[in-house]
């Protein structure tokens, strides 16, 4: 028996409150999707006409706030952050899933602190990074202090997704490897981590999205210098910080639109990539 529209309407006639609930639900959903769409459409509409070749010049000057250096900085920042956070995150996940015994105190503390870490606002990370790296270690505004701060920020994400992925690896894989005479370390590196790779990868992509979009944690750590950095200890602004700096100066709205558009495109691409990896994971 199929419920036709007519049946539904007659039910709603008897239960007007149900109809009301359905209407407010649809309205809420339309609002949610509508806001997302209008944000994207607005940024595209305002951003695309303002794109110009000058905005992609290699040098940032007072006359031409080129965004190419910021794009390059974003890539460098992402790579350094991942180089720090990925081994730590995966290593922690391996310890929690493969080594730790049930009821281990350390595991409990590690999980609680990871959860705490993921709830700390980015501005607090920024303050901390400023105090520890810029002041206490005398690094000043630098790429490296921004990257370590961000690595701490994305660590819980990588840890949690890797842990889930490692737990999903069937125990028979481990037993098979041990049975063939492989040691624990070899089993981990050549059997367990490779088969958990898609899950780990989706966590890493999620983190890339967070790194690219981050502003508050970087303003006081990596600073707002608009050029391509000479080394790890020079200040460098990422694309998000570039948008903030342009808006803050208030003179370059058109350039801010164009930069926000490029940033949004990056975020959408990263999102699609994580969907793609996620789909591959569930198909398997």
């Amino acid at each position: 028996m199929k419920v036709t529209l007519k049946d539904k309407l007659s039910t709603y006639k008897q239960h007007p409150f149900s109809l009301f609930l359905m209407i407010v639900m649809v309205l809420a959903m339309v609002f949610t999707v509508g806001i997302t769409l209008s944000l994207i459409v607005y940024i595209v509409y305002k951003g695309v006409p303002n794109l110009s070749p000058e905005l992609f010049e290699l040098k940032f000057t007072a006359e031409n706030q080129s965004m190419l250096p910021s794009i390059i900085n974003t890539v460098i920042m992402t790579v350094i952050t991942l180089v720090i956070a990925v081994p730590l995150g995966i290593g922690a996940a391996v310890y929690l899933t493969e080594y730790a015994k049930r009821g281990n105190k350390l595991v409990k503390v590690a999980r609680i602190t990871a959860e705490t870490l993921s709830g700390i606002p980015s501005i607090v990370f920024g303050l901390f990074g400023f105090l520890m790296f810029n002041i206490a270690l005398h690094w000043g505004y630098s790429l490296i202090s921004g990257a370590i701060t961000l690595a701490m920020m994305v660590l819980p994400t990588i840890m949690r997704t890797s842990e889930e992925a490692l737990l999903a690896v069937p125990d028979s894989y481990r037993e098979g490897s041990f049975g063939l005479g492989a040691g624990k370390v070899r089993t981990i590196f050549s059997i367990i981590i490779p088969s958990a790779m898609p899950g780990i990868l989706s966590g890493i992509i999620l983190s890339i999205g967070r790194i690219v979009g981050e502003t508050a944690a970087l303003i006081f750590t990596a600073g707002t210098y608009g050029q391509i950095p000479e080394n790890l200890f020079s200040s460098a602004r990422t694309l998000s910080v570039h948008v903030y700096a342009l808006l803050n100066e208030g003179l370059y709205m058109d350039k801010a639109y164009a930069t926000a558009f490029v940033l949004l495109v990056l975020v959408v691409l990263i999102n699609l990539l994580s969907k793609y990896v996620g789909n591959k994971l569930t198909k398997k």
Binding site: G213, V243, I270, K275
Partner: peptide
């Protein structure tokens, strides 16, 4: 809708502010 909601979570706060 679901991908739209996920995308919403990924949009940087500076873009929301803008």
């Amino acid at each position: 809708i679901k991908p739209a909601v996920d995308l919403m979570a990924g949009i940087p706060s500076i873009v929301y502010g803008f």
